[in-house]
Structure formats: structure tokens, C-alpha cells
Design a protein around this nucleic acid. Structure first.
Lengths: 211, 211
DNA sequence: TCCAAAATTACAAGGATTCCAAATTTGAGG
DNA sequence: CCTCAAATTTGGAATCCTTGTAATTTTGGA
């Protein structure tokens, strides 16, 4: 029982990547709605049944690596300096979130190899995918808030933690959206996101100081 | 051509209400996923085709009145006292949003007659409906931000308006969610929402004062 | 009463998703 | 190398949502 080495495991990873790659290619060529699950499976040389073994649905293929991103942020919170006060920590977390929101540029996802531009275009274009993305963000917020409370159990109660995370993420998203709708350049999108978080930070800092 | 009186129009409204009522009843009795579109149509004594004439999809039936709620908030912004400064206006808007978030209690929706408890339970339970609700919230935020900017074109730019609305709504939602997950009473849910908005207001007020 | 517009309907088709049982492949032990 | 149990894959049926179309019915006004 080799958990991460055996042939079986390697083959599974290869199939998984093949499915993601096939989906990305077809979505780019024909669009999301015009691509059928059967076509993706065929392009990856597996049956449709197998596709559903790997992903819960057509939309899940695009969000295959989301747990990875979230884990990065959760680790950032968990591994904080135990002596750092909440107020300055929130400032650093803000920077971290800005970085996480960055994938506006022309790169490709580290884990899945999906071009960020494709993902972004699909999320803003296809209602079904926008909805999926929003659900993931909400779940991420939940966990971030929980981690924040766990990091400062005596100084930040669950409710305040949720409010702080919600304010930061909500402001960041809204501001970012405005910039994206203006078709601004990546640098400007990041600046807009930063501005949004900065607006929220006014209240977040105050909440972090008042235990 | 009587726009809102004729028999034709009245009959349409009746059919619409019948569909919503049938859906609400069946969702309550058998659950959302277990209820088919055909069953809803049959219970309302129309064909499935007609159901799709009235609603874009099964999930839309539950959100039939959302435009109404949003319009209320938009009117609140549009009809502000032209001389009121942004900072105090935002305080009043905050109260307004808390009220809008209130439907936690045991009442039923004014427009559709759907019990708030049913809607809330379904939204938190069925992923598809949660996603739909989140998309509606995002769209509402967009319009609120636009209205806010329109109300104070010289003092609140679009980006800051979006950030303010995003922070308030994000914080309110997150905090409310925590309270709901604890199965708290309506009063406590409202208090939690208020707390969330209060956290966000710290930054929002500052942004409203800095033109 | 008669007509044109508006609604409703039946029906077919396409596609996502679930389920299940059969067939295949893999890993490990002998 | 051989064999077997477990893990994977697969084909295919079945259900349901959703869209599109063309026929039919209903409605309001002339």
C-alpha cells in the first residue's frame, strides 16, 4: 500500500490531468456550454463514467485546485507568530489575500495548468460557473474566519472574525469586479483590490484592537 | 390595452402564484431535489412548458420576488435627501440593509407567500440554491454600488462605492451565517448581522469622509 | 361575430447526472 | 510466474432539466 507512489496512483494523476487539459482545450476552442461531458471524456481517452469518478460535475473540472489555494491561506494563519497582535497580523493577512486575488495576469495555474485568463473569462461569462466560484469563496471565508478565531481565541470571537474576513473579502471582490468590468490592466486590477481591502481595513483594524 | 387590469393579466398573475404555491408546498413535503418540474406544473394545473414560460428554471421559482427587495433598497438610495452627507447616509443605509437581511423570522414573503423559513432552509441546504442566492446578492451589490456612486458622483467614486457596499454586505452575510449555524433565535441573528455591519462601518465611514 | 395577438400545449431532442452490474487492471502474496 | 481480491473502468439504462418548434386554444378588441 504505497499511498503516493504506486503505478495505480500515478496513472490516476495522469488521467486527472488529462481530463483537465482536455476540458481546458475544448472550453477554449468551443466554449463551455458547447462542450459536452462526453467530448471531454473522449478527448482524454476515458469513458464519461470515469470522468464522473474524478469530478463531481462538468463545472468541478475548472475548480480542481481550489483546495490548494485555500490551504495556503489557512497555513498562513495557522503559522503566525504567536506573539503578534491581531491588528498587525490582519495587515499582513490583507497583503496575503491581495496576492491570492492576483491571478488576473496571463499566467497559468500552478496545479492544474489552466490559464488564468480562461478561468477568469469563463467565471465572468457563464452563470453556472460564476455561481460555483461564489460558493467556493463563501466556504473559504468560513474556514478563514474559523482559523482566525482559532489563532486568537481570547481576542477575536467567532462572530467578529467572520465579520472581519467577510468585510475584507467582500470589499476586495466588489472593487476587483469594478476594475475587471472596466477591462483594466492586471496592475490596475490589483490596485483596485488593494483599495477595496483598504476601505474594509479601517473597520477591521478597529475591531482587531477592541477585544 | 390595459396594462395591469385585463382578465389576461389577472389570469397570468393567478397562474404565477399557483406555480409558486405549488412549488413551495411540494418542496416542503418532498424536498427540493425530489420534486420534479413536471410535478410542480401538474400541481398548478398547467403544462411544464407553461412553467418555463413563467420561470427561467426550477430554482427561479424560489427567487421570484428578488427584484422587489432590491428595488426597495435602490429606491432608498435614489430618494435620499440631496443635502445629506455620505457619512450619515451610510449609517442609515446600514440600518436599511439590516432590515433587508431580517427575513430570518417565521413570517412569509410579502410578494410570493413563501415561508421565509422554507426559503432559508433550502438555501442553506441545497447547493444549487445557495449558488443562486449568492449570484443574486452579487448582482444586488453591483447595483447598490452604482446607485451609491450616482447619489454622490463627486464624493464617492465607483471603486470606493463598490468597496463600501462589498464590505458591508460581506461582513453582514458572514456574521449572519455564523449566527444561523448556531441555530440562534431571530433576534440574535439580527444582532449578529448588526455586529457584522458595525465592523465594516468603521472603514466605510472613514471612506465616506475622505473624498 | 371575427380576427390577430398572446398563451398554452404537446412533443421531440440534447445533455448532465446517477446508478448498477459487468469487465478490466493493478498490487501483493505465494 | 501465477492467482486472487480490491480498485478502476466501462457500457448502458434511466431520470430529469431545459430548449425549441409547431400546433392549438384563449383573449381582447374591432
Amino acid at each position: 500500500m504505497e499511498p503516493s507512489s504506486g503505478l495505480r496512483e500515478r496513472k490516476k494523476q495522469r488521467t486527472r490531468r488529462a481530463l483537465i487539459a482536455a476540458a481546458a482545450r475544448l472550453f477554449t476552442e468551443k466554449g463551455y456550454l458547447q462542450t459536452t461531458v462526453a467530448e471531454i471524456a473522449a478527448a482524454a481517452e476515458v469513458s464519461s463514467s470515469t470522468l464522473f469518478n474524478y469530478f463531481a460535475g462538468k463545472d468541478d473540472i475548472l475548480f480542481a485546485d481550489d483546495r490548494y489555494r485555500l490551504d495556503t491561506a489557512l497555513r498562513f494563519i495557522a503559522e503566525r507568530d504567536p506573539d503578534e497582535p491581531p491588528s498587525t497580523f490582519m495587515d499582513r493577512l490583507a497583503e496575503q489575500l491581495i496576492a491570492a486575488f492576483t491571478p488576473t495576469d496571463g499566467g497559468t495555474d500552478e496545479v492544474t495548468g489552466i490559464p488564468n485568463s480562461l478561468r477568469l473569462q469563463l467565471i465572468t461569462t457563464v452563470p453556472e460557473l460564476q455561481a460555483r466560484a461564489l460558493r467556493l469563496v463563501q466556504e473559504a471565508q468560513r474556514q478563514l474566519a474559523e482559523a482566525l478565531h482559532a489563532a486568537y481565541p481570547d481576542q477575536v470571537d467567532r462572530l467578529t472574525a467572520a465579520a472581519m474576513v467577510g468585510a475584507m473579502m467582500g470589499a476586495a471582490q466588489s472593487a476587483r469586479q469594478v476594475s475587471l468590468e472596466r477591462n483594466e490592466l492586471p496592475d490596475q486590477v490589483i490596485a483596485a483590490t488593494r483599495h477595496g481591502i483598504e476601505v474594509a481595513m479601517g473597520g477591521v483594524r478597529a475591531a482587531a484592537l477592541r477585544p
